[in-house]
Design a protein around this nucleic acid. Structure first.
Lengths: 205, 205
DNA sequence: TGACAATTTGAACAACTGGTAGAAACATAC
DNA sequence: GTATGTTTCTACCAGTTGTTCAAATTGTCA
């Protein structure tokens, strides 16, 4: 019944469009945002270009003026997430701060990205098998670089004697990232805690 | 070219099969296992029944003798994961142990499931939107029950004064589960650590 | 206004999808 | 051997998919 309602509203849009004789203004950004939402909800393989176009009040053919193909949309989602994640983390890692403070800020940053870009983030950690060619390899590399920042901060802390050496830095990194990434699966902005509060609890852990 | 090779090998199989006049023996278990692997790799929506049949050296039509439809396969994967997860955790939660020991065992158990049933586990946390009807609701409920066990153990520990009250039990649960679930994304059985060792490190965290 | 570029449409396409029906191959018991 | 029930194969259907493209529409600016 939800699907029927959605379909009905689209028909409404279409008829009102033909009345006012106005067409929709598409942008690459809007396409990527709508697609991220649908990919997160239904998966890349199960989302059709028709659905994406429908949500934007346009037709499938129009999409191809702004994007190369379906995978191209996915590529843009990955670039979006990466550009929002990498730079701030690199700054934190390079800042002249004690390791504990660095780690805290890094976790807050990552949790913020996970909470804010929720749909894109969900896609990011789900649909990488659908990326092909050199771009797929690039993403793997950049993901590893990203993880490496956390690892280095933890190693720094261990060398300085503020973090326990009982836990391997790699495993600790995966554990921390796992906690944060899992956020995008359950976090609701209108819940009892903000993502900053949650990040603070993670830091304490 | 990969697809062509695969197609070629199938033709080979078919001809050799008709030569030796032997057909494949299918079981529901084998179908579900093969499907879990493909779903984990390519996603539910992007995996066709032809591919599943191909991997088993059979044809699509034969699958339908053992399963009701495509979603039915997904249902079996979910039941597999749940039956392997629920009972042991319930036992741990009910055992007369100190909360710290309970939590440790629960984490080890969950990490073990995440590491062992890796493909099924990946599917479990990815493809729930493709479950429909009452079964979908049942899964949500059983997932929540599962999480509730962890929450209760933590609350127990907080009441006994062994765990810090600074962290909300719900958030702590999501954090711990996040760490473990993330395992299925990166854990390799031939890596430097066993899943027990990793679980032990998580417990220490 | 008119001309030219930017944008959208709508139809067509080949390939593929989940699902079905009935014939064919098999195993088992007699 | 035949008869019977189980399992797999082949061939097909109707619907959907990503992608292309000429034609139609809109925006822009002289």
């Amino acid at each position: 019944m939800v699907a029927e309602d959605a379909a009905a509203s689209v028909i409404e849009k279409k008829t009102s469009r033909s009345k006012t004789s106005r067409r929709v203004r598409l942008t690459q950004k809007a396409i990527v945002a709508a697609a991220a939402d649908l990919f997160a909800r239904n998966g890349f393989g199960a989302t059709s270009l028709d659905e994406i176009a429908e949500r934007l009040g346009a037709t499938k053919g129009a999409l191809y003026y702004h994007i190369k193909n379906k995978e191209d949309i996915l590529r843009h989602i990955y670039l979006m997430v990466l550009t929002a994640s990498e730079e701030p983390l690199a700054e934190i890692a390079a800042a002249p701060l004690p390791p504990a403070e660095k780690l805290g800020r890094a976790i807050v940053h990552h949790a913020t990205v996970a909470a804010n870009r929720s749909p894109a983030m969900t896609v990011f950690y789900r649909e990488h098998p659908h990326l092909t060619g050199p771009f797929a390899r690039e993403i793997v590399v950049r993901k590893k670089v990203y993880e490496r920042y956390f690892e280095q901060i933890i190693e720094e802390g261990q060398a300085a004697g503020v973090f326990s050496r009982a836990i391997d830095a790699k495993i600790a990194t995966f554990g921390l990232l796992g906690m944060c990434n899992w956020l995008s699966q359950w976090y609701q902005p209108d819940g009892p805690y903000t993502h900053q509060q949650i990040a603070a609890m993670f830091v304490r852990m």
